[in-house]
Each structure stands twice: as C-alpha cells, then as structure tokens.
Design a protein around this nucleic acid. Structure first.
Lengths: 336, 336
DNA sequence: TAGTTGGGGTCAATCCATTGACTTCCCCGG
DNA sequence: CCGGGGAAGTCAATGGATTGACCCCAACTA
C-alpha cells in the first residue's frame, strides 16, 4: 500500500479509502489509485486486515472421523463443494481439518478461536448430547450446525437440517404399501442425531401400524458392518422382507451379501439406500434410494453462515425432504 | 500478551521470549509467564505472528474438478486425511478450495500468494503441459506436486509420485501370463500426467510383446463413461479379454455392464481396477485391483512440504509401486 | 468581508507478536 | 576497588491495513 500511495501521489489512508469504496477521495483519485493497485497486482494482506479488526476471512470445517472410516463417501465432498461455491463468491477461505473424535474437534475450535483463525465454523454430524454447540455458543464463534435438529438451547447457532423423520415416514409408507411387514433398518452410528431421529421415527411408524417385527440396528457405516448385519438378519427363521440402509455403501454391501445368501432382490427382499449416488446405479439391480441434493445442502449451510457473519440473526432452515427414488431394488413383498 | 505481561509483572518482550523458549529470561520467570499464559488460555494470534515475519502457518490445497465429477472417490479424502495427520503435528492449517479448472486454480494460487495466506501448497492431478509448476516457481511459493513425474524444469518444487509405469508393466505382465492378448485400458482424463504415463507404458509393453490388439481409451473417470466405453468395446466382433480401468468407480460400472451384456467375469473377460477401495470388495466377483496406500501418500507429500517450509531442498520422492491384488475378477483368458 | 460548510486529504494511533538495540545489575578477576 | 562480561530484562520499531481526528482550501452565505 505504501508503494501504491507513493506512485499515486497520495497518502496511505487515501489509498485505503479509494480501494474500499468509501467516501473521502474524489473519483479521479480513486480511479488513479485503482489503476496503480491493479498494475502492481496488489491484494490486501489478510493478516494485516485481520489485525485491524476485520475478520480472518476464513471459516472452519472439521470432520471428526477415524481415518479409516473415511472411505467411499460421496456426501462430504459434495457438501464441501457446495459450501465452497458460496464462500468463493465472498472470497472466504475454508480451513479444513480431519480429527479422530469430537473431543479433538472441540480442541480445534478452541484453538481456532484463541488464534482468531476463523470467523465462524460449520459443524457436521451433530450428536445427541453434543458438547460442540455449547462450546461454540460459549466462545461466541458463529456456527451453523449441519444436519442437526432445531435446538432451542443455543440460540446463537444456526441450523440447517433435512427432515429425516419425514423421509423415514415416507419410506415406511412406501414399503408398507408394497406389503412389507418385517423391516430392518441398518442404521449409522448410534450417537448421531440423525440416526436417532430415523430410529425413533421408524419405531413410531411401526407402532402406529401395529408392526412388531420392525427394528433398527446401528452400525459404523462401513461396508463390512453393513454386510455383517445383513448376513445376520437374513439368517433368521423369519427374515425381513425389506432392508433400509443408512448410506449407499452399506446398501451395496448388503445387497451383494443378500445375493450371496441366495436372496433375490427385490423378489425376496427389498433394499433402500439412504443416500443416492453414482453407486446406486452401478450395481444391479439399481438401488432405490433416498435422494437429496447434498451440494445444495452445502450451499444453504454456507449461506446461513455468511448471513451470521454479516451480523444476521441465527436461523433454523429446513432443506427439502429427501425423496424416495424408486428403482429396481424395491418391490412387492412375497406372500408369507 | 499485554495481559500476561502485566499479571506476570514483566514486559511483553519477556513474555515473548519466555513463551518461545528463547534465552533472555530466567527459568523462574519463564515458568511464571507460562503459567499465567496457560491460565488465560492464551494462544498467539496467527495474524500478528504472520505480520511479524512468521509464515501464515497454513498450506493450501486446491482441487480442480467440475462439481459433478466429485463423486464417489475415496482417493482424495484419504489423501487429505494423511496430509492432515502430518500438518496437525506442526499445527499447520489446511486451506482447502474446490474450483472448476486449472485456470481458476492458478488464480487461487496468485491470490493466496498476494494475500500471504499460505506458506506453501500441495498440487494434485499434474498434467502434461501444466501451467502450475511454472507459476508456483515464479511466485516462489513452496509446493509439492503430488503424482507428478520428476520434472527438471522446476527445481524449486518437490515431487511425490508413484511409479505408474512400473505398476502398469506388472499388470500387463500378469494379464499376459494369464493368456490375455486383447486388452483395453479404460483410462482417466486425457490431460493428466499419470494417464499419459500409463497409456505410454501400456503401448510400450504391448509393442515389446508384439501385441497389436491393445489400446487405451480416455474418459472422464465417471461411471457413465466407464460403462459406455465398456459397452462399446465389448460389442466388437473380437472383444477384449481383459479390461483395465483407471479407477474403482469405472471398474465397478464396467463390470456391471459386462454382466448385462452377457459376459461372465472373469471367464469371458478379466477386470482390473486401478485403485483399491471398499468398492472393490462390495461387488461380486471381487475386483482385482492395484493397491496403494493413499493415506501414506498424503503423509509423504505433507512431510515433503514441511521440509520445504523448513528451508530444506526440493526433492523427488517415489512412493512404493502400487501392487496388484488378485481377487476374483481376473482369470485365464478363454482360448480363442 | 468575515464566517461557515463540506469535499478531499493527511496524520497518527491501533491491532498483536517479534526482535534488534540498549540498559541494569550482579559476579568475578585482576 | 574497579572494570569487564554475561544474565535478565526493557524499549521501541516493525509489518500492513484501517480509522477517528484533524487540516486545508474553495465556494457559498449573510
């Protein structure tokens, strides 16, 4: 800036005013300064900006997953790419970190906060009894919880969520209509808020319809557990006629396992994947799946965060209910 | 820091010395200062640090992919998680950005450089005729090229690469041994350096053995193109007896397509995937695949970058040659 | 003509940590 | 008893952008 000031024959303040579009300089000067800046390829140093009160121009994103669980998961990359789209417009950077568990994640937030490294964060995989919203609220770090249920206890945080309950209800509805009465839900990680929501809803729906042979089994989302649970439940004397998997990976693994056990899909057992991705169309029969727009999900979350950074109020936004895409893996239940 | 200085009854300089382990303060004072700092939960502001000459304590990572191509790809998340592991030890942040193409990527580097946002970057998906190494060299931004071939033109950059040529040779070797003479390689994006290396090696190996019905077809890595190409080549009068796919996604899509066309795997056609992941064991028959440790790949790259940041010399490091994991999708060629 | 006003700028402080130059004070040797 | 030297600290400048306080002058008003 000193350079620019010199070459344009004005003070540094004038340069600052000119470049930030604030009054205090004539249009002529402004133009001159702009041209010099352009010519010099000048960009404000984020560090200096930050020191003088502006934010860090960065938002944080932590993924708490044991390294080996990060496998074939289309959801996160899509989410992140949606987030980026919005952040890029405002020239906000995304500081990304992978950690082992939520405790480490909290430590990261604390550090980022103390170091003033980020202006806000995006939180994923909310849990029942999650320490993160409390921490972020306490630190006063703007945050958007992605996939959480609305939470009154932390009015400082925004929430963006999909209506898992509604989606689960519609899946059960569909399966019930097809005549399925024995349904097993191969769920994801037990502590996660959306797992709990799905499990609860399934139970409620079953009760409402008087179904007794409906249950959820939690897993770690891995293909291995998906296959193992499938093998176990299909080995029962009265095996389920429909399986709902909480992600695409387990659904594929499960369907393969079913085939190995001599079950034909969908004649003997119907399969639904909770998450639509290329995977679902890479196997035969094509997997029926719950589809949502993860990229748009990311965009929405990022938009909420920027709104928060602009001083807007915390909000709770619901994205469209995931839709059941019926393909080939679901069909009428075989008569008992 | 002012706070700490006050409470510990010393000057700010003393605090700085104490906390950074430099001489100039007594052990007693140092301890006192440390305790006060700890108690206050103090962490140096990265911005201020950066202004006084230290780096940004951040490295950049840009992924140039059209949003819709980011699909089911285990490689990047694994790579990133390996990178993180090493960076986290040194408390270095990872600034992550997704862009559309290499041109945008270069713009991002320029911006980061001008804003002093990153101390170095990790470059992935090097291409033939890649503008990035030149740019980074010119900017003097420390960089590690991941997956590039050694490149003498830019002595400032480190390179971490896997020996694709060696791996391709071993795959061809294996297939040849099994009696395959008509081989099609469903390759990745044409401009990528490793695609070119694989294609070239395949041609060389074919020539060496006098095979005339061997070829590579480039694609965009998507399941759709993988399936389409498979359909096309298997529809020929003399279809190939072995298919090599440049990623797991296309391999699965291709194998499914082959099955639909009435080809039995591996009896009629053998399939090899270049990238081992859970996917390969989620389909039947299990996919034979080239396996490499992507997490370790990431760790190595990050280590090279930190070495570079410490002022070390640029180096070229080769990670172990990917190994062929023979599963069920490869077998002896059917007699002509 | 004296006084007011506002557009166009400048000055200097501020944010926070680091660091080279300098000051104190104590201990030891001569 | 004095001077040299080293340990322990302090002072103030530095880096880059922002910003509240102030200044100057031309034009307009009473």
């Amino acid at each position: 800036m000193k350079d620019i000031a010199q070459r344009a024959g004005v003070s540094e303040s004038a340069v600052s005013f000119a470049l930030n579009g604030r009054p205090g300089v004539s249009e002529v000067t402004r133009d001159r300064v702009r041209r010099v800046a352009e010519q010099l390829g000048w960009r404000p140093s984020t560090a200096a900006r930050q020191l003088s009160g502006e934010g860090a121009a960065t938002v944080g994103f932590v993924l708490a997953r044991p390294a080996d669980t990060l496998g074939v998961d289309s959801f996160f990359l899509q989410l992140v790419s949606g987030i980026q789209e919005v952040l890029a417009e405002r020239h906000l950077g995304l500081l990304f970190q992978v950690v082992e568990d939520v405790t480490d994640e909290c430590a990261v937030y604390r550090r980022w906060w103390a170091e003033h490294r980020v202006d806000g964060v995006l939180v994923v995989d909310p849990r029942t009894d999650d320490p993160r919203p409390g921490l972020l609220d306490e630190l006063g770090l703007p945050a958007v919880v992605i996939g959480g249920a609305p939470d009154e206890r932390h009015p400082g945080l925004s929430t963006v969520w999909a209506d898992d309950a509604g989606a689960m209800a519609s899946v059960v509805d569909e399966l019930y209509r097809l005549g399925h009465r024995r349904i097993v839900h191969i769920a994801g990680l037990p502590g996660l808020a959306h797992t709990e929501r799905r499990v609860r809803t399934l139970r409620a729906e079953a009760e409402r319809r008087g179904l007794t042979e409906v249950e959820s089994v939690t897993t770690d989302y891995s293909d291995a557990e998906g296959a193992a649970v499938t093998r176990r439940v299909l080995g029962r004397p009265a095996p389920p006629t429909a399986l709902i998997y909480d992600n695409d990976v387990m659904a594929v693994a499960g369907m393969t396992t079913a085939a190995e056990l001599g079950f034909s899909v969908p004649a003997d057992v119907s399969v639904v994947a909770w998450e639509d991705s290329a995977l679902c169309r890479m196997v035969r029969p094509w997997l029926s799946a719950l589809s949502r727009d993860s990229v748009e999900f990311g965009r929405t979350a990022a938009r909420e965060l920027t709104a928060l950074l602009d001083g807007g109020p915390a909000r709770t936004v619901r994205v469209p209910v995931p839709q059941v895409i019926v393909r080939e893996s679901t069909g009428a239940a075989r008569r008992a």
